[in-house]
Amino acid sequence: MGAGHAHKLYRQAASPVHDLPPHCKIAAVFLFVIVVVSTPREAVWAFGLYAVLIAVVAGAARIPAGFLLKRLLIEVPFVAFAVLMPFVVPGDQVHVLGLALSKNGLWGAWNVLAKGTLGVAASVILASTTDLRALLLGLQRLKLPSLLVQIASFMIRYGDVITDEMRRMSIARRSRGFEAKGLKAWSVLAKSAGALFIRSYERGERVHLAMVSRGYAGSMPVIDDVTATGAQWRYAAVLPASALVICLLGWTL
């Protein structure tokens, strides 16, 4: 897709990973995550190997390590929960630096942390090598319910429009001397959010009107379709297949 401007999640580059059809990549990432999640948490080495796999894919996609690591920060709020686990989960205790930690909790925290990080890393690679439009085509190709694809596509189209509207409302508020501080401001902000909701709702009605006027009858016509060759599928399958081998080893060793 030769979109003039890309979304900021996407990282323009020429690489074999960028060239893969989107639905192959989505399927590969999905299977990879499933395999990682089904790996026993005690097989610590397996997670190390998964990380190596991710690093190899990132290398093939020409994604610098720093870029990937920075994107991983999105995980932090979820990880906060994992950090709590050693303190709150009941069971055998171990003492580290004078702190009483639950053994079960430590394993639990490791489990969440390792699997979460690998999943997020795989998704970051997917998002950096596939632009949003292509992702939607991929999902459509993978037969995700068309209503969900439509909703996602409208989110992309109207995200900026609504953000713009929000910004204009904020400018209008501030131009009349409003500064958002203190409890009192909350009521104003809540009313603005309500107004924004109603405006967006009404826009939704107008968009629907425009769609119906051009012959929309409940389903989106397929305008673009993506196809993949057997070779492309096999190439995309390398990631989940190697992960599967590691996972099986993790269960048997």
Binding site: R133, S153, I156, R157, V207, R214
Partner: peptide, 24 residues
């Protein structure tokens, strides 16, 4: 319609223009 943001609802110009004929 008056507001082109209501009229143009597809991710790219090309797909938007294609919408009507494709729907038929």
């Amino acid at each position: 319609f008056q507001d082109p943001d209501d009229q143009l609802f597809m991710p790219t110009v090309r797909e938007d223009v294609a919408f009507g004929p494709a729907a038929s």
